[in-house]
Amino acid sequence: MAKPLTKTQLVAALAEEMGADKKSASACLDAIVNVITREVSAGGAVTLPGVGKIYCRERPERMVRNPATGEQIKKEADKVVKMTIAKALKDSVNG
């Protein structure tokens, strides 16, 4: 498995793809992250065309097991961020 791109590498690749400088590419990336964070934390969802859909899902209260002791404990309800991958991306990876 290849190593994931770092933010610096992603900004450089984005700047090259956009034909812009790294400063504007970094500002663009930060703006996208801020919009996604704001929407998902407010309970909404964001669709990135060709990539997938990022959304927040609520998990109910449930019983979990402590792996060290085997003790059953109650875990409170919480929220988790999920992502559904777009079919186009799946097909490009597999095809």
Results as ranks from 00 to 15, higher is better:
Asp30His: 06
Val93Ile: 14
Lys87Gln: 07
Val35Ala: 13
Ala27Ser: 15
Glu76Met: 03
Asn94Val: 02
Arg62Gln: 08
Glu17Pro: 00
Glu61Trp: 00
Thr6Met: 03
Thr37Glu: 14
Lys23Phe: 11
Ala88Leu: 06
Ala15Cys: 03
Thr84Phe: 12
Gly19His: 02
Pro67Cys: 06
Ile85His: 07
Thr8His: 07
Thr37Gln: 15
Ile54Asp: 15
Glu39Pro: 02
Ala31Glu: 04
Lys75Ala: 15
Leu89Cys: 10
Cys56Phe: 13
Ala13Lys: 13
Leu5His: 03
Leu5Pro: 00
Val46Phe: 13
Gly95Thr: 03
Glu16Thr: 05
Ala15Glu: 03
Ala31Val: 05
Ser41Leu: 10
Glu71Thr: 08
Leu14Met: 14
Gly52Ala: 10
Ile73Asp: 00
Lys79Cys: 06
Ala12Ser: 14
Leu29Thr: 00
Gly70Ser: 07
Glu39Asp: 07
Gln72Met: 10
Met18Leu: 13
Thr8Ala: 15
Lys7Val: 02
Asp21Gln: 04
Val35Ser: 09
Ala45Ser: 15
Lys75Glu: 14
Met63Asn: 10
Ala31Gly: 10
Glu17Met: 07
Lys22Met: 05
Lys74Cys: 05
Tyr55Phe: 15
Gly43Cys: 01
Asp78Ala: 09
Ala12Arg: 03
Ala25Thr: 00
Asp91Val: 03
Lys74Trp: 02
Ala42Gln: 13
